[in-house]
Design a protein around this nucleic acid. Sequence first.
DNA 1: CGTATTGATTAGAGCGCTCTAATCTTGTAT
DNA 2: ATACAAGATTAGAGCGCTCTAATCAATACG
Lengths: 338, 338
Amino acid sequence: MARPTMEDVAARAGVSRALVSLVMRNSPKVSDHRRAAVRAAAAELGYEPHVMARSLASRTSTVLGVMVSDLRNAFFAEVVEGLDAAAQAAGFDLVLNTGGRSPSRERRALRSLLSFRPAGVVLLSPVIPASAIEEASRQCPVVLVSRTSRASTVDTVNDDGEAGAALAVDHLVSLGHRCIAHLDGGGAATAAARRRGYLRGIRRHGLEPLVVRSEHTDTAGEKAVRELLGTNGPVPTAVLAGNDFNAVGAISAFEDAGLRVPGDVSVVGYDNTSLAALRHVSLTTVDQPRSEMGRLAVEALLERVRGERAEPVRHQLHPSLVVRSTTAAPDPEQAEET
Amino acid sequence: MARPTMEDVAARAGVSRALVSLVMRNSPKVSDHRRAAVRAAAAELGYEPHVMARSLASRTSTVLGVMVSDLRNAFFAEVVEGLDAAAQAAGFDLVLNTGGRSPSRERRALRSLLSFRPAGVVLLSPVIPASAIEEASRQCPVVLVSRTSRASTVDTVNDDGEAGAALAVDHLVSLGHRCIAHLDGGGAATAAARRRGYLRGIRRHGLEPLVVRSEHTDTAGEKAVRELLGTNGPVPTAVLAGNDFNAVGAISAFEDAGLRVPGDVSVVGYDNTSLAALRHVSLTTVDQPRSEMGRLAVEALLERVRGERAEPVRHQLHPSLVVRSTTAAPDPEQAEET
DNA sequence: CGTATTGATTAGAGCGCTCTAATCTTGTAT
DNA sequence: ATACAAGATTAGAGCGCTCTAATCAATACG
């Protein structure tokens, strides 16, 4: 298992270690003759440079640390795919951790990532306090995805949740809905913007807002809808869920209660995860360009690494509405009742 | 951004670099007095050891390379969570890559992982040829998840797909089904075992097998069912899909054709991904213990690393059936027709 | 024919750490 | 006091690489 070193290659090719180093880094100042000899020797030995040794010697890193709060959430998994694609293209590698939405675990995970002296760190929807993030940003560039920051040392990549939620409201209103509820994402980092967008949209159309506190899970969505149906207030003809999972839970609860989606009630999700795209679910939802977000996060990091930029950048991506089969014009009868 | 080194801590604490090294590694042979001084100095400077330098000097690695063919597939994402948990517990970090089911990309990804001189490598359902895997296993321990191998240098972690599929068939038969089709997973690594289990189960009950070629995606599941319904052969009263995605696609197609699940036709998935657990989907499926698989993969690697074992280990996990709402006794009328 | 000049190659120090072997302190027995 | 373990501390080499500065070879020029 002892792999060959640069020294071995040098000996075999009959040159110095330094020359092998130049060849491995594709330096132009090597004669074709020697280059070929080194290449051949390396191939015969199956030699590949040791990234850690390289990193140590060159005082640079090709590692990007990634802390993902929960990989099981398809949204994050897809952002990670985007990160990976961009990183591979730029010759970087990802060191990945999960934080499980627990501040202490996240702190440990972040510490672990930083001990690699990475070129940069991506935090996907972290729950640790801003101070911990700023502290990390003193060690290397940090970019936040799905979380905002005011620190001038950290970049952010978010979708414009306010615009996205407003988009969904506009869609529902244009279908004829007048009573539209929002299942709030509770403590989730993205929840506040979505709620603001919902409220803004509703008020612009002169309607009454109805916000039900929930969470970004399907069971929470179910529970919220049960509560909604249990009150003696008006039953909305449409619901904007906090995210896709929440929406799917809401749909379940409606169907359990004998209401058809979209016949009796329309449901809109948020994120456009692969779940929403399944024909069986076919959820109308707001798309966040996830791989694009991953790409931008890597790009932001590399700009800092290369010293091309010192001021923070706040990427705010334009969400778009994806209309599928869970929204339709409201049932005329029911609409009259309201 | 220049982080403190061991030298800085040593100077501040008034001791040698070697002593700081001992403290950082929790060596017992350091006096309490000095230990406290070093700890204090490290804390004041915000010092954390540089894992790469440590790795280089100690000739050991705390890195585990992970190549995942597709993170978007919840199954893999969940195995990665299991890997992460086990790795963190053992003080290891994951370097993660995706191969996108493309042999050339996978090769590159694997090469990239190996250049870290990792303690071991986990390959999740790789598509590269066995020879490439064996070659890698000469560099460091390799464990395969969801793929088999005969090489004595590589370990494997798989569920017993044959048993799992047979389990599903038994369940359907016990409900009274006599005509049970299987949507084959096509080229997927796990497909063959599942097909074998299906055939074995079907024959043991003296039934006629009906295998439809498909893929492990929801669109393929839909397509396969459309084909099934288009033929003038018997329409099965139950279907064992290749995996959960495939099952969800199949359900869509049945419902589009006016058949109710499970009223007219029962559907069983495979994997028990989070998708299946969603109440809205509530799919009867065969559970693979994903995080356990991740844990076992890490364990196998560490056993090799510690030299505790040289012979290959073939973990074959017992799948279990999770009965939800997509299976029921067949409609008596339709059963008579058959 | 000597001397710049350019391009190709290499020696050697050093990245931040670990690890072995040597050195320095103690405490204890004599 | 004196010797000697046992424990605590440190010097120094080295992990596999990069990078600067120096060396060497080959051509060009007056």
